[in-house]
């Protein structure tokens, strides 16, 4: 996913001379081909994220479309005020390509694990937040970033994530993709939780439970219309995210439903990481497993929630 997104920057740069790549201090050789072809538009500016965001704002004011790239935690926490003021307040078309969203950098510990990035980016007015699920979707998403007005935060996964997105679904920023039509349950996912939801849905199907999946690649702006459509007739709404429980996809979905429905809210299960820093290392997969986000743990949580709510919960109707 990461290589694909990087190569797309090169591709976009070839098509549009406004496109810049700005890295802080990425790995040796990052976008080498682009640095050869467009040396003036391939900028490596040092471990100075706060400065780089401000500098990108200045470049964007003059018509460039900077794609700023570094590790997710340093693109969010480290330079939050610059993102808020320089990018969001000025509503400038700077793209933040965040490597290692979620627990990708599990072995590197809490300083490198981006577990609240969706919340803090989503909180900012004018910011768009996108979490593609695989490399193919990342490529389709990058195509859409060229002319989008305002800043975009792009949360990338590890790379090598199984390809589950489909070309025929296309990609439009802010338009959720219904991967499986709703049944007893609707799972709403973002990023690489989609793969786990698909596997969980298969496990549930074996138990006779029909589970739909709505892939919310864009967490902000949230596709509320698609959400309301998809929850029709379901008994349980489940959100899945590689993120702390506050402020992420689960929060966004709950807020949207409260705002739209006000009452008669669906039974909801929010599956996420716990509200704490991870003091375990290992791998992304092992940490997700530890926190109940393996496909089988997801399926089990859903079965339990359904059993608990099997008391006559009314079928949901969106208005």
């Amino acid at each position: 996913m990461r290589n694909t997104a990087m190569n797309m920057v090169h591709k976009l740069a070839a098509r549009d001379e406004r496109v810049l790549y700005i890295g802080s201090d990425p790995g040796a050789g990052t976008l080498r081909a682009m640095s050869k072809e467009f040396p003036k538009r391939h900028l490596i500016e040092g471990i100075s994220e706060a400065h780089i965001i401000g500098m990108s704002a200045g470049l964007a004011m003059e018509g460039f479309v900077p794609y700023v790239n570094t590790i997710a935690t340093f693109l969010t926490r480290r330079c939050y005020e610059q993102v808020a003021v320089d990018l969001c307040l000025h509503n400038l078309p700077v793209r933040l390509i965040a490597n290692g969203g979620g627990l990708v950098y599990a072995p590197l510990g809490p300083t490198h694990q981006a577990i609240e990035d969706i919340a803090i980016m989503r909180a900012l007015p004018n910011m768009t937040v996108i979490c593609p699920c695989d490399a193919d979707e990342a490529a389709r998403m990058m195509e859409q970033t060229l002319d989008w007005k305002g800043p975009i935060y792009i949360r990338l996964g590890k790379g090598g994530d199984a390809i589950v997105s489909k070309a025929e679904h296309g990609f439009e920023i802010g338009k959720a993709i219904l991967m499986r039509s709703s049944g007893d349950v609707l799972m709403v996912t973002t990023g690489i939780m989609l793969q786990r939801a698909l596997a969980a849905a298969d496990l549930l199907a074996a138990q006779g439970i029909r589970a739909g999946i709505l892939h919310m690649h864009t967490v902000k702006p949230l596709d509320t219309a698609a959400l309301l459509q998809a929850i029709r007739g379901t008994r349980l709404l489940v959100t899945l995210e590689e993120h702390v429980p506050s402020g992420g996809l689960g929060s966004a979905v709950a807020e949207a439903l409260i705002d739209k429905l006000g009452s008669g809210l669906p039974a909801m299960l929010r599956l996420s990481l716990p509200d704490r820093f991870m003091h375990n290392y290992g791998s992304q997969d092992s940490l997700l497993k530890k926190h109940g986000l393996s496909a089988s743990a997801i399926a089990t949580s859903i079965e339990h929630a359904l059993a608990a709510s099997h008391t006559p919960s009314p079928q949901l109707h969106s208005t």
């Binding site: 950098y105 072995p107 590197l108 510990g109 300083t111 490198h112 375990n280 290392y281 290992g282 791998s283 092992s286 940490l287 530890k290």
Partner: peptide, 11 residues
Amino acid sequence: FCGSDSILGGH
């Protein structure tokens, strides 16, 4: 080092 339950992480 860097194991799931180790006290010694990558930082």
